[in-house]
Nucleic acid binder design. Structure first.
Length: 801
RNA sequence: GCAGAUAUGAUGGAAUGGCAGACAUGGCAGACUCAAAAUCUGCUGAUAGCAAUAUCGUGUGGGUUCAAGUCCCACUAUCUGCACCA
């Protein structure tokens, strides 16, 4: 057998798979199905990254195994192609984003095919295709009809560099998700999706799915449900209530001041009666200037201004208390106002110390002269609550009192905010809404979908945060679908996350022109059995798409309450320097180069062998050689081939053990140890000196999910059959055991010798053998044997004193 | 600050409470070669010893156990997420 020509072999089998539609999901809905989903890529101009290869290789292996196990496998791929980088390229190079997108998709497609992924290429999706975004708009209109879409003028996250409004999810850490500039707060009228309406369902649904624990936890934290109470404090000077939210109504007797957010509407409402209104407005301006960074750095250093002219009254004590404004209270959470209990809240404590406000202890257990006490304890100075020691009881009693007084009730709050759902950019789905001076906001009729993007000359957004579409009169000016009068179209587009919020549904029936997917197809394929992707999408795409899916479920459009039955995540591939791969660091590895030099099989093997699939691991140019050697040595097995269909006596146990190990490890995504066990088997075969034809075919089958090209070639050369059409192989538990086993003989937990015994020997025989051993005897000599422990087929431990 | 994860040779990493370091890289020595590369063989945690072997060894300090990398407690470091969320 000559040298392994990976270039020819890989090309040959990729062509075979394509010509034979080997990986096309069948329409035969009587077969058991398996739907494996990977996050479809954003087709950027830089081409694919080795991170993509790792992200797809996991379920690629599982899918190839599932097909051999007789499943009808749906393993689709597509392109999430709307987005700013494409638009920016279009502006910079003066090419239409449609062309940029098409070029990039072509590039990605050829790269994906070069690696030999077993995607069903007949179901490719492009979110910018009008046959696709028609349905994105359709779902949006369904939400609009059902009151989940609204417009609001509020303070929003705005990226001055990208010139767009961003959602909370897109501006985590106060940075723009696209360009990493600092976000500023801006008051603007924007579109929202009422995702908070689904907060409880999104939370409860997590209990029914098999997600990685960390994925669940991050979603729970992001939703951030808290239970507490709303309390109305009256304002002494006016017939007015100041409504606050608290998780600790039991500390109501310890309130010594109130704090409201600088943007709180109460200030505007009573501005004429507030004596220091100028001071308050100056403070508000100062706060607006602070960057997110400054705000977090100055956490301890509380600032604020007392409102001169508004005094609150404690509903349970009747005491008058001062009201402050401070930027440590956010307008976006709760009611934008708090009751401050400095004795038992660190932030309130800092504020009270700085402003010289009273600190009243209502829970015993700490030293409030030194710090706030946030633990539990007996209630004091709290009227009817005095003497209660349990926090839960105290809260209940407090709620009861508030109820009787009619000035408060139980309440729930979420950290998650409604989804800011529009961008002032060109390359996105147009929002299908018409603004009519008579009828207000009117939906574009369903039969007019898709509402196509108009052709424009200039993709630059306006400086005032206006979409490029606003400049196209022929697009903007239209008739109201309701009254027929002159009206104007909405010119904002949807955010990038829109298209990916339902793409897994389209894969089920991608060419349907009547519906986003037929009910029969959805019933058969959904839910996604296994979804793998990156941790960075857990609090964005994963939450968004679960929300859309739950909405469609409530509408009766889909048949499962959750879209994804199982979710796993791969770890990053780091650069050789251990840092995250980035162009600026110059440590990026191009998968094309690796394929050209070593072949697709070696690349696939290496990204899975380099470490735990779920953990980050640095790339190593020298380590990849190990996988290259492995592939060449597998090819070399054909030089030591002997006739015979079955397993040889020498290797039968090794094979059965390896079949078991590889089969199990694939299911638990322990690809690194699965490959290691194949390497061990290969070493054992070379030690044995020969391999039977049957063994060679078995080896190829085990290797196939990881390195399909070389496996197909060797299998075909030695059987005349196509491996991808064969079945997965099974093992016999009995044959995984050697006839004799080496067990360890310990004295007081220290290894003294090793014994070869027959498998499943009985306790007495083994202990007798151990005690007869010279080394054990000398270690035990002069001591009393207190205890003898025997773990079958593992060890003997003699405890002697 | 809160939550979670991680810590093992020179390196990436293995190890249902039961032989720590599988597998691979790198290194050293040898074979082949005029030579190099490739390939093949052997060795490769530390210390002592010619050796058999002994002792030590999984971030630090304690604990549970016949037995701990693994379980419990405290600490340190790193990474990730959230962050003045009332």
């Amino acid at each position: 057998m000559g040298k392994y020509d990976f270039r020819a072999v890989e090309k040959k089998w990729q062509k075979h798979w394509e010509d034979n539609q080997t990986f096309r999901a069948s329409d035969d809905r009587t077969k058991k199905k398996f739907y494996a989903l990977v996050e479809f890529p954003y087709p950027s101009g830089h081409g694919m990254h080795v991170g993509h290869i790792k992200a797809y290789s996991g379920l690629e292996v599982v899918s190839r195994k599932r097909r051999m196990e007789g499943y009808n496998v749906l393993f689709p791929i597509g392109f999430d192609a709307y987005g700013l980088p494409t638009e920016n390229t279009a502006i910079k190079e003066n090419i239409h984003p449609r062309i940029v997108t098409d070029n990039n998709i072509e590039k990605f497609t050829s790269q994906l095919k070069t690696v030999g992924f077993s995607f069903d290429w007949s179901r490719v999706i492009d979110t910018t295709d009008e046959n696709y975004y028609k349905w994105t708009q359709w779902i949006f209109l369904k939400m609009f009809e059902n009151g989940l879409v609204f417009r609001d003028k509020t303070s929003v996250n705005y990226c001055p560099s990208c010139k767009v409004v961003l959602s909370n999810e897109d501006s985590q850490g106060g940075k723009c998700d696209i360009c990493h500039s600092d976000i500023v707060q801006k008051t603007k009228e924007v579109w929202y999706l009422r995702i908070t309406e689904y907060a409880d369902k999104l939370l409860e649904g997590l209990e029914t799915v098999d997600y990685l624990p960390n994925v669940k936890l991050q979603q729970q934290n992001w939703i951030g449900k808290s239970t507490g109470a709303f309390v109305n404090f009256s304002i002494k000077e006016f017939d007015e209530k100041l409504r606050i939210y608290t998780t600790r109504p039991d500390t109501l007797w310890g309130v010594t001041f109130m704090v409201i957010a600088p943007e709180h509407p109460l200030i505007e409402k009573y501005r004429d009666s507030i004596k220091n209104i100028d001071e308050l407005e100056n403070y508000k301006q100062e706060c607006g200037k602070k960057s997110e960074f400054e705000r977090t750095q100055l956490v301890k250093d509380k600032t604020g201004v007392k409102i001169d002219g508004l005094t609150a009254v404690n509903p349970v004590t009747g005491k008058e208390i001062p009201v402050y404004i401070s930027d440590y209270v956010m307008m976006g959470y709760g009611t934008g106002a708090i009751m401050a209990v400095p004795a038992h809240d660190e932030r309130d404590y800092d504020f009270a110390k700085k402003f010289g406000i009273d600190i009243i202890e209502v829970i015993k257990g700490g030293d409030i002269s030194k710090a706030a006490y946030t633990g539990e304890g007996e209630l004091v100075n709290s009227g009817e609550l005095n003497g209660i020691t349990n926090k839960k009881d105290a809260i209940e009693k407090a709620l009861e009192i508030l109820g009787k007084l009619g000035c408060g009730e139980k309440g729930v709050q979420y950290k998650m905010k409604d989804w800011a759902f529009n961008r002032q950019r060109y390359w996105g789905e147009p929002i299908p809404i018409v603004h009519c001076p008579k009828c207000g906001m009117v939906a574009v009729p369903y039969d007019e979908l898709p509402l196509r993007l108009p052709e424009v000359e200039n993709f630059e957004p306006g400086t005032d945060g206006e979409s490029p579409l606003a400049k196209i009169d022929s697009f903007v000016n239209c008739k109201c679908p309701k009254c027929g009068g002159d009206a104007k179209r909405e010119t904002d587009t949807m955010p990038q996350w829109a298209g990916s919020s339902w793409y897994f549904l389209r894969y089920c029936d991608p060419h349907n022109s009547e519906r986003f997917a037929s009910k029969e197809a959805l019933e058969y394929w959904m839910p996604v059995d296994w979804y793998n992707g990156g941790m960075e999408h857990v609090t964005r795409h994963m939450i968004y798409s679960r929300f859309w899916h739950k909405f469609l479920y409530d509408m009766g459009e889909v048949n499962t309450p959750e879209p994804y039955a199982k979710r796993t995540a791969q770890g990053l591939i780091l650069g050789e320097d251990g840092e995250k791969m980035s162009k600026s660091r110059g440590n990026v590895v191009d998968p094309n180069d690796v394929v050209a030099q070593y072949g697709a099989d070696v690349l696939r093997l290496y990204v899975l062998f380099m470490g735990d699939y779920e953990k980050a691991a640095p790339w190593s140019e020298s380590s990849i050689k190990g996988c290259k050697r492995f592939a060449d040595r597998v090819w070399g097995l054909q030089d030591i081939l002997t006739d015979g269909d079955g397993y040889s006596d020498k290797l039968v146990t090794n094979f059965h053990k390896t079949i078991k190990k590889v089969s199990e490890d694939i299911e638990s995504m322990k690809f690194n140890t699965a490959i290691a066990s194949l390497m061990t088997l290969l070493n054992d075969i070379y030690s044995a000196g020969s391999i039977t034809n049957g063994e060679l075919l078995a080896f190829c089958t085990l290797l196939y999910p990881f390195a399909p090209h070389i496996s197909e070639e060797i299998y075909f050369n030695n059987s005349g059959k196509v491996l991808s059409e064969q079945s997965w192989i099974s093992y016999d538990e009995k044959l995984c055991q050697d006839e004799t086993v080496e067990i360890v003989a310990q004295v007081n937990g220290k290894v003294r010798t090793k014994l070869n015994i027959a498998v499943d020997s009985d306790r007495e025989t083994v202990i007798e053998m151990a005690m007869a051993d010279e080394k054990v005897r000398s270690a035990v000599a002069g001591k009393n044997v207190v205890k003898q422990i025997y773990v079958p087929n593992k060890l003997v431990n003699i405890v002697a004193k």
